[in-house]
């Protein structure tokens, strides 16, 4: 194993520990993360694998294939985050509205 492999695996391990601590209760997220991390480790240990896969898909280098797929993944993550932001905004709105209405109309307060 050479230096960069150690560095990358250490990074993935750090991410794994962090998520295991934070997302203990979401089984689906954990499973997804586990699969992604395992794929990452496999490709780090056997870089030739990614090259062969890339060639099969018509991409020159394995590193390029990883790059392209991560762009798609990032877009996916951004959209998910936006969806969550909108959801949060709607919750805040509901609360603020309820508060404003109750204050203007104290009779309706339970």
């Amino acid at each position: 194993m050479n230096g960069i492999q150690l560095l990358l695996i250490a990074g993935l391990a750090f991410v794994a520990v962090y998520f295991f601590v934070r997302l203990r209760n979401s089984l689906f997220d954990l499973l997804l993360l586990l699969i992604l991390l395992a794929t990452g480790v496999v490709f780090i240990l056997f870089p030739e694998l990614s090259n062969r896969l890339a060639n099969k898909l018509g991409v020159g280098r394995g590193a390029d294939l990883v790059f392209y797929t991560s762009i798609i993944l990032f877009w996916f993550v951004i959209l998910k985050l936006y969806a969550r932001l909108r959801k949060l905004e709607q919750i805040v709105t509901t609360l603020v509205r309820k508060d404003a209405l109750e204050e203007a109309d104290p009779k309706s307060r339970p």
Partner: peptide, 14 residues
């Protein structure tokens, strides 16, 4: 006349 106030700024639609 009915006066209401949002606790935080939400925007005109809200």
């Amino acid at each position: 006349l009915f006066q209401l106030r949002h606790a935080v700024n939400l925007g005109q639609g809200a």
